[in-house]
């Protein structure tokens, strides 16, 4: 019996999932007619194909071009760790890493991420071991409700990769794109400092 707390079993058999995990050519799958007409016209039918790698797994899907990267993750791939807080690029809850750089997944069409490598909160821990940032967030109680937390963590991972923030002032400024209404900011800064010390 399904435990309702975990929700009914998710069925990734939605029509948009063609293949997951399979190795396929990166090039756009163009309808034959479209290719002849112009090398750049794709899918006049309204649905478009996209192939992108998420947390190391390649996904090939045919989607509504309006699908944001955020909704692709949450609604199509059941990667619900990435959060929707505003859907307008104003809160940072949807932050993921695209080729290692932090971005707001709500303000971008998934189809534009053809061939990119996306890392979400589900991909931050390596092999069951928490990322140093994740452990530091727990140690410093750098969250309360937890809703902004995946975005804070992905943002902090991006921040560390950038290598620009050295001082608390710089961490604060460069983490200001992630709103925490619970107000855990000082603990978030402390957690990031801890993780920076370790890495």
């Amino acid at each position: 019996m399904t435990d309702p707390e975990d929700g009914p079993t998710f069925h990734p058999t939605r029509r948009d999932v063609i293949a997951a995990g399979a190795v396929v050519p990166i090039a756009m799958a163009l309808p034959p007619g479209a290719a002849a007409q112009s090398p750049s016209v794709a899918a006049a039918s309204g649905r478009v194909a996209v192939s992108l790698t998420i947390n190391g797994t390649q996904h090939v899907l045919t989607i509504d071009p309006r699908t944001t990267l955020l909704d692709l993750l949450r609604e199509h791939l059941d990667l619900t760790g990435t959060k929707k807080g505003c859907d307008q690029g104003q809160c940072g809850a949807c932050t993921v890493l695209s080729d290692g750089r932090r971005i707001n997944s709500c303000l971008t069409f998934a189809v534009m991420f053809e061939g990119r490598h996306i890392t979400t909160i589900e991909g931050l821990a390596a092999g069951g071991t928490l990322h140093p940032l994740q452990q530091a967030f727990i140690d410093h109680d750098a969250f309360q409700c937890g809703y902004c937390t995946p975005g804070q963590l992905c943002s902090a991972a991006g921040l560390m990769a950038e290598g620009r923030a050295k001082t608390p002032d710089e961490i604060r400024e460069l983490m200001s794109g992630n709103i925490c209404r619970c107000g855990a900011y000082p603990n978030i800064v402390a957690a990031i400092q801890q993780a920076m010390g370790r890495s």
Binding site: G89, R102, L107, L159, G177
Partner: peptide, 9 residues
Amino acid sequence: GASQQLRNM
């Protein structure tokens, strides 16, 4: 301007 995430995009 904006945030680092937005500036990256």
